[in-house]
């Protein structure tokens, strides 16, 4: 499976479908899936190297809230607001990541630090409710119909435009994944995740390599958050930050497959369909049921299907192809 042509082909197919016409509700679902898939891909860049962050909600929340707050209070276009939000996410990643990596806080301890981080961001949003709307959520001011052009406000009425944006963003995410996958950085981080001392003895600057991938992952996640708020025109602390959302990110990627290019996308489809089904059939009777399901399913996946659904399917296909190649080779000889 070629990791460039396939994503591009998929993206082209989606664009054609959008032009031909997709009803509004499926289009909405697909936009949300694509934006989440981008965010999940960002998480998987760290997760695949054993840097399990339970705190990516922090970066997502930062991306969403910084962009929206700058728009509402400073009148700053998202074209400037998003880069600032991304810079803040990178800074936060360094502030949290550098001490962790320097003092070798790894594995479960790293996960715990990041878990605290996501709650800090959620609580900050709630504590500054005078500006952020607290747990009731926050709405970016809709652009005036006359003065601010759509493109400047990055607000679009029609879903088709958003769909094209989402496809482009998602495609970029897959290409970043591929670039990392093919680089020496992947080997270096695989080595670091196995044995930091041995990696250092091979000349790898362990702290720096981990920091780079963490910043990349945080910036992507923050960008996903910014896209989310621009599209939904609403953001609440629980939908982008906090333990619930962080857990959802981990679950989605692990379920989809953390070591494969389309794994996070597959995970986005699973989590979103699950959330929609619960919303339709159970409604508000069981708030938090999705999180409970994510938690249980996460444990099951880690124990029984650590490569995720898509990763395991790919493995099975590859094994089958290998067998065919081998048997045809023997029968030919």
């Amino acid at each position: 499976m070629n990791s460039v042509t396939l994503p591009v082909a998929f993206a082209a197919l989606l664009v054609v479908a959008a032009i031909v016409g997709i009803p509004s509700y499926p289009l909405h679902i697909m936009i949300v899936i694509l934006i989440w898939a981008f965010t999940y891909t960002g998480w998987s860049l760290m997760g695949r190297f054993g840097l399990v962050s339970l705190g990516h909600g922090a970066f997502m929340g930062l991306g969403a809230y910084a962009t929206a707050l700058l728009w509402n209070y400073a009148g700053m276009t998202p074209w400037l607001g998003i880069p600032i939000a991304l810079a803040l996410a990178a800074l936060l990643a360094v502030i949290v990541g550098y001490p962790c990596f320097k003092f070798r806080i790894t594995g479960h301890y790293f996960a715990l630090v990041t878990l605290a981080l996501t709650e800090v961001v959620r609580q900050t949003v709630i504590a500054t409710r005078d500006h952020t709307g607290g747990s009731l959520g926050f709405t970016p001011t809709p652009r005036g119909n006359d003065d601010t052009p759509s493109i400047v406000a990055l607000q679009f009425q029609d879903k088709e435009t958003w769909f094209l944006i989402a496809v482009a963003v998602w495609l970029v995410g897959l290409l970043i994944w591929r670039a990392v996958d093919r680089s020496m950085v992947r080997h270096a981080l695989d080595a670091v995740s196995e044995d930091e001392d041995s990696a250092a003895a091979a000349g790898i600057n362990v702290t720096w390599e981990k920091l780079k991938i963490t910043v990349l992952s945080a910036v992507m996640t923050a960008f996903g958050g910014a896209m989310y708020v621009q599209y939904q025109l609403f953001v609440a602390p629980d939908t982008v930050s906090g333990i619930g959302i962080s857990l959802q990110i981990v679950f989605a990627v692990v379920a989809g497959g953390v070591f494969t290019q389309f794994g996070p996308t597959f995970g986005a489809i699973i989590t979103l369909l699950l959330a929609e089904l619960l919303r339709i059939y159970i409604g508000t009777d069981a708030v938090g049921l999705d999180n409970a399901i994510y938690g249980v399913a996460l444990v099951l996946f880690i124990v029984f299907l650590p490569k995720g659904i898509l990763g395991s399917i790919e493995d099975a296909v590859r094994r089958r192809l290998d067998r065919q190649v081998r048997s045809s080779a023997t029968s030919g000889a």
Binding site: H187, D190, A191, S193, E194, S198, A199, A201
Partner: peptide, 10 residues
Amino acid sequence: FQIPRPFRRL
């Protein structure tokens, strides 16, 4: 290293 520390994933 005294005890070999290869990278098993590579």
